[in-house]
Simulated scan of single mutants.
Amino acid sequence: MRSGILAGLAAFLLCACASPPPVQHAPEPVQTASRYRAQIHTQLGAGYYSRGQLGVALEELKVALAADPNYGPAYNVLGLVYAALGEPTLAEQNFLRALALDPNDSEARNNYGLFLCQRNRQEEGIGQLLQALRNPLYRTPELAYVNAGNCAQQTGDRKRAQEFFEKALQIQPSQPQALRAMAEIAYGDGRFDEAHAHLARYMQIAQPDAESLALGVQIERRRGDRQAEASYAAQLRNRFPQSKEAQALESGDL
């Protein structure tokens, strides 16, 4: 059951940590009208992408690039859209175009690294993620560390993954994906009190799902805290009765 939790966690982390381009509220004084139009339609495209409206996102991004074919962030979001559409070749082409236009675009580099990890090209992906972190102006370096940790975890390198997640938490102590991943790693290594501490912090800042509640059941069972185990089990049964985790709990396989 632990491997199932890990696989679900990997998918969760990969979906959660894509970086949209920074929001632009007004044109810069020297900015051309075409560049401003490209920014506005890129932001609209990013918004539609985040809501899963991929067709509309694609149309907005085409408008952005018609206005300014050299606007890098539009290619970054296009990469995300094409990846979500199951078009990996087009996705990679657009990420690379974004980086060719601006090698210091850490959002694009983070997203490209994430994409590579999703394509089972983990070492290439980690390389891109670490390169994103070299930019001192990168607004969300914790996301790159989370993605690097998840990527390392996919290769079975739990020690390296833990190092990346710890760095994410040094930057943002309440980073939920890193806290949850650290709880999973600590549980797998038999450090049950540490797993308990990380999961408790995660539960304070995030809405639990079936996987995190199942992990709580397992951690508290190994710690011998029957009351806490029963609490997690009750939440799992009540909130996610049809989940595979709840079914495993009822059958004794959890």
Rank of each mutant, 00 (worst) to 15 (best):
Q122K: 08
R97Q: 06
G188F: 15
N110G: 05
L101Y: 06
Y187I: 03
A132S: 02
P176L: 08
G188R: 08
K167M: 07
N94A: 12
F192K: 03
F115R: 00
Y187D: 09
L133G: 04
N135F: 13
Q93Y: 15
G125W: 09
G79I: 01
V81G: 01
D193Y: 15
Q170P: 02
L114W: 10
G86D: 03
L116C: 11
Q172F: 08
R121T: 07
Q177H: 12
A168Q: 05
E107L: 10
L116N: 06
Q131S: 11
A132D: 00
E107V: 08
Q170T: 15
S174R: 13
A84T: 04
F164W: 05
L129F: 12
N110V: 14
E92F: 03
E123T: 14
Q177G: 04
R97H: 12
E142Q: 12
T89Q: 15
E194Y: 04
R119W: 13
G79S: 03
G188W: 01
L101F: 13
N111S: 07
Q131N: 13
E107N: 14
K159W: 12
Q93R: 15
Q172D: 11
Q93D: 14
E124C: 02
Q177R: 04
S174E: 14
R134Y: 10
P88Y: 01
D157H: 08
L85C: 05
F95C: 00
E123P: 13
E92K: 09
Q118H: 12
R201K: 14
L179W: 01
D193V: 15
G149L: 04
T140G: 03
D102L: 07
C117H: 02
E194T: 15
G113F: 06
G156I: 08
N76W: 06
A74N: 03
A195Y: 07
L78G: 01
E87L: 15
I185M: 02
F115W: 08
G149S: 10
N120E: 06
F164V: 02
A83I: 00
A161R: 02
A83D: 13
A161H: 05
L90Y: 05
L90E: 12
L199T: 04
Q118W: 07
L169H: 09
G113V: 02
E166C: 03
Y145F: 12
G86Y: 04
E166V: 06
Q175P: 03
F115G: 00
N110L: 11
R109I: 03
R160C: 01
P173C: 05
D193I: 15
E124P: 09
E124W: 08
Y202A: 07
L90C: 11
I185K: 02
L78A: 00
Q175T: 06
Q122W: 12
G113S: 09
D105Q: 08
L137T: 14
R158A: 14
N111K: 03
A108C: 01
T155S: 15
P103H: 05
Q172E: 13
I171S: 05
E124M: 06
G149M: 09
P141R: 10
N110T: 12
I126H: 02
D102G: 07
A100P: 08
Q177D: 11
T89E: 14
S106D: 10
Y138G: 07
A84V: 14
P176R: 06
G86W: 00
Q170A: 11
A148H: 01
G79R: 04
R180W: 11
T155C: 11
G127V: 05
E194H: 07
A200F: 11
E163C: 05
A144I: 14
